[in-house]
Design a protein around this nucleic acid. Structure first.
Length: 180
DNA sequence: GTGATTTGACCGCG
DNA sequence: CGCGGTCAAATCAC
C-alpha cells in the first residue's frame, strides 16, 4: 500500500513556495516603514512555514528509510533548536512558481504568544495586521478552558482566509494558535 | 441601525 | 458516537 508520496511532495513544494512568497512580502514590508510587529509576524510565519516544510521532509525521509532499511532505530525528536546561526543564505530568485491551479491544503503556521500576566483583561494589542471577528467558541476536552475561533473581518478585501484559534490556559498561558 | 459577540445547534470526520 | 469546527440567530455595544 503506497501512500501518496507525490501528494506529499506537491504539498511540500507548495509550502516552500509559500515561504518564498512570504519572504517576498517581508522584503516589501522592510522597504516601506511598516510596523515592526507586522514584519515580526511575517518572519514568524516564514519560520513556521519552514518548520512545516522541514517536518514534512523529515517525515518523508524517515518513511523512505523505513521502507529501505528496516533497521536503524532513529528517534524522531522534533525538538526545536534555538540556535540559529546566520549561515550564508543563498536565496536565488528562481522563476516564479505558478500554483494557481488548485489549493488543496494550506500550511498552517501557529505562533504561541503569551500575554503578559498582569491580571488585566487586556484586549490583545497584538494586531498582526488584521482584525479578527469571533465566530465560535467551544470547550475542548482535556483543556480546562475554552477555545475561541476567530476569523478575518472583510475577507473579500485581502483574501484573508485565516482562522485564528485562541486557547486559553488556566492563568498565564494564552496560546494564540493562529491557523491560516 | 449597523456590525461585532454570544451561544446553542449542526455537521463532518475519525 | 464523540469531538471539534462552523453556522446562524439572537443579543450587545457603539
Amino acid at each position: 500500500m503506497d501512500s501518496g508520496n507525490d501528494e506529499d511532495l506537491k504539498q511540500l513544494l507548495r509550502v516552500l513556495a509559500q515561504g518564498q512568497e512570504q519572504t517576498s512580502q517581508l522584503e516589501a514590508h522592510l522597504d516601506q516603514p511598516s510596523t515592526a510587529q507586522v514584519c515580526k509576524s511575517l518572519a514568524q510565519q516564514i519560520e513556521s512555514t519552514f518548520q512545516t516544510a522541514i517536518s514534512m521532509m523529515a517525515e518523508g525521509l524517515q518513511h523512505q528509510q523505513q521502507q529501505q532499511l528496516a533497521h536503524t532505530d532513529s528517534p524522531p525528536s522534533a525538538g526545536d533548536s534555538p540556535c540559529s546561526d546566520s549561515s550564508d543564505r543563498v536565496f536565488k530568485d528562481h522563476e516564479r512558481m505558478e500554483m494557481y491551479k488548485k489549493r488543496k491544503s494550506m500550511p498552517r503556521w501557529s505562533k504561541q504568544v503569551r500575554v503578559c500576566s498582569g491580571g488585566g483583561a487586556i484586549k490583545e494589542p497584538l494586531v498582526d495586521g488584521y482584525t479578527w471577528r469571533k465566530y465560535g467558541q467551544k470547550d475542548i476536552l482535556g483543556s480546562k478552558h475554552q477555545r475561541s475561533y476567530y476569523r478575518c473581518t472583510h475577507q473579500n478585501t485581502k483574501g484573508c482566509l485565516a482562522t485564528k484559534q485562541v486557547q486559553r490556559s488556566d492563568e498565564d498561558l494564552s496560546i494564540f494558535d493562529i491557523t491560516y
